[in-house]
């Protein structure tokens, strides 16, 4: 059992070396940690996303755990059936994990996710959020932040990013959390908590993508940390309807975060200021929700 952060580097390897992930992939760091925390006792359902490619070409797979590759819209419904079948067979301690990207969660997989959350199916739904459809070549998704460049938003996205964690929390599920590869202790705590609970658990992991966000490959973890410190990615959890902000960093200027990524290089100082106000007001909204006590029933 992974007790401390340092246990995330030890132990058996469930993601074998030689995968097809890009150098500096944030999603693979998250996947490696999740598997070590669950000790490999999990069946993964993976819809179309980067992770379907990271496995490597048939007939080999870099993943040393059971994986069921599914169509884009059906991750949560497949995992629902799998969880029910396992429980009917008397298997209680095997986790069913739906592991989807932001496209398969925010946009295409939303109806199946919402259905599974409503039925409170016994699974862990993990969304690793790299803020666009990276696998198909960087198209915008509901998770892309405002003003960010993608191939389908060449002058910057005009719309906001969906507040997905709160959308799922509004279903009244037992556990919803956001995590980041930049804060491993917080990550471990949330995954351990989810592991011990039953019912529908949703975790959303911030996974920077050097290919799509256009930053140097060695900056993945640095950017993940900066996203939390600049209030771009607040770390919070909603447990039985009660919201708690788990990491309250000293705020750093948003410029530190955007200046590292070329997807934001067209921004003027005024744009950055506007963006900073947006993220700050989202943070303040979260603080108000935290102060209210139980917000979702």
């Amino acid at each position: 059992m992974a007790k401390t952060v340092m246990d995330l580097r030890r132990g058996p390897k469930y993601v074998l070396p030689g995968s097809a992930a890009c150098p500096g992939c944030g999603a693979q760091i998250a996947l490696k940690w999740v598997l070590k925390i669950l000790e490999g006792r999990a069946i993964f359902v993976i819809p179309a996303c980067c992770t379907s490619v990271i496995q490597g070409p048939y007939p080999k797979s870099a993943f040393k755990f059971p994986v069921y590759n599914m169509a884009f819209a059906a991750a949560a419904s497949t995992a629902s059936g799998m969880a029910r079948a396992l429980r009917a067979m008397g298997e209680e301690d095997i986790h069913v994990v739906a592991w989807a990207g932001d496209g398969g969660t925010y946009d295409i997989g939303l109806q199946a996710l919402s259905g599974a959350a409503e039925r409170n199916e016994d699974m862990i739904y993990i969304c690793y959020d790299n803020e666009a459809y990276m696998n198909t070549g960087i198209q915008r998704s509901g998770a892309t932040p405002p003003k960010a460049w993608t191939k389908t938003t060449p002058t910057g996205k005009a719309e906001m990013k969906k507040n997905m964690a709160l959308i799922v929390a509004a279903h009244g599920v037992p556990y919803v959390a956001t995590a980041s590869i930049g804060y491993p202790a917080d990550f471990l705590k949330k995954l351990k908590k989810a592991k011990q609970m039953r019912g529908f658990r949703y975790i959303q992991i911030f996974a920077p993508c050097p290919t799509g966000w256009n930053f140097p490959v060695d900056k993945t973890v640095e950017i993940a940390k900066l996203a939390v410190d600049t209030y771009v990615w607040p770390l919070f959890e909603v447990e039985h309807g009660k919201l708690k902000i788990t990491v309250k960093p000293r705020r750093r200027p948003l410029k530190d975060y955007v200046s590292l990524q070329k997807r934001f290089r067209h921004l003027t100082d005024a744009d950055i200021e506007e963006l900073e106000r947006t993220f700050l007001s989202r943070w303040e909204a979260l603080e108000r929700l935290e102060a209210q006590g139980t917000i979702f029933l």
Binding site: L16, P17, G18, S19, A20, Q55, G56, P57, Y58, P59, K60, S61, A62, F63, K64
Partner: peptide
Amino acid sequence: IPVSNPAEAAAGQT
């Protein structure tokens, strides 16, 4: 049903 089996270097060496 096509099933892939776990192996190191599934996508080659670096």
